[in-house]
Amino acid sequence: MNLILERTDQVKFFTNMKEVFSALNISCHDYDWFVSDIETNGLVISEGWHSGVELEKIITSNDIQFIWAVFSAFPIGTRFAVAEPPYVDGNPNYWNASEPKPQIEKAIFEIACWDSSATILIGVNPTMAKSFKSIYTDTIELKNAAR
Score class of each variant (00 low, 15 high):
Val88Cys: 15
Asn25Pro: 00
Asp89Phe: 12
Ile67Cys: 04
Thr127Asn: 12
Ala83His: 09
Ile104Glu: 02
Thr137Arg: 15
Gly48Tyr: 02
Val82Trp: 02
Ile64His: 03
Asn93His: 11
Ile111Leu: 15
Lys101Ser: 12
Trp49Pro: 02
Gly90Leu: 06
Ser22Ala: 15
Ala73Lys: 00
Pro92Leu: 05
Ile111His: 04
Gln10Phe: 03
Phe21Tyr: 14
Asn25Trp: 03
Trp33Thr: 05
Ser27Ile: 05
Ile111Thr: 05
Val124Asn: 08
Thr78Lys: 11
Asn2Cys: 04
Leu3Phe: 03
Trp33Leu: 06
Lys12Gly: 09
Asp30Met: 10
Ala97Cys: 13
Tyr94Lys: 05
Asn41Asp: 15
Val53Ser: 15
Pro86Leu: 08
Arg147His: 11
Val88Ser: 11
Ala81Lys: 13
Ser27Thr: 08
Ile64Gly: 11
Asn144Gln: 13
Trp49Ile: 01
Ser117Gly: 14
Lys18Met: 11
Tyr31Ile: 00
Val124Phe: 03
Met1Val: 14
Pro75Gln: 07
Val20Phe: 12
Asn2Ser: 05
Asn62Ile: 08
Glu47Gly: 04
Phe132Asn: 08
Asp32Ile: 00
Glu141Tyr: 14
Val35Leu: 15
Pro126Gln: 12
Met1Arg: 04
Asn41Tyr: 02
His29Pro: 00
Ile135Tyr: 12
Glu105Arg: 11
Phe34Ser: 03
Asp37Gly: 10
Glu99Leu: 08
Arg79Pro: 00
Glu110His: 04
Glu110Phe: 00
Thr40Glu: 09
Gly90Tyr: 05
Glu84Trp: 01
His50Ala: 09
Ala129Val: 10
Asp89Cys: 14
Gln65Tyr: 03
Ser117Gln: 15
Ser117Ala: 15
Asp89Gln: 15
Ser22Val: 01
His29Gly: 10
Phe14Met: 13
Glu110Met: 01
Asn41Gln: 06
Glu84Leu: 07
Ile135Arg: 14
Asn93Lys: 12
Gly42Met: 10
Ile58Glu: 07
Lys57His: 11
Tyr136Arg: 11
Pro85Ala: 07
Asn144Glu: 15
Val35Met: 13
Glu54Phe: 07
Ser116Gly: 06
Leu43Asn: 09
Leu24Arg: 10
Ser134Leu: 10
Ile140His: 02
Val82Gln: 06
Ala69Glu: 04
Ile135Phe: 09
Thr15Phe: 07
Gly52Pro: 05
Asn25His: 12
Phe80Asp: 02
Ile58Gly: 10
Trp49Asn: 02
Phe21Ile: 03
Ile45Gln: 03
Ala73Met: 01
Ser98Gly: 07
Ile26His: 00
Val11Thr: 13
Pro102Glu: 09
Phe109Asp: 02
Arg7Lys: 15
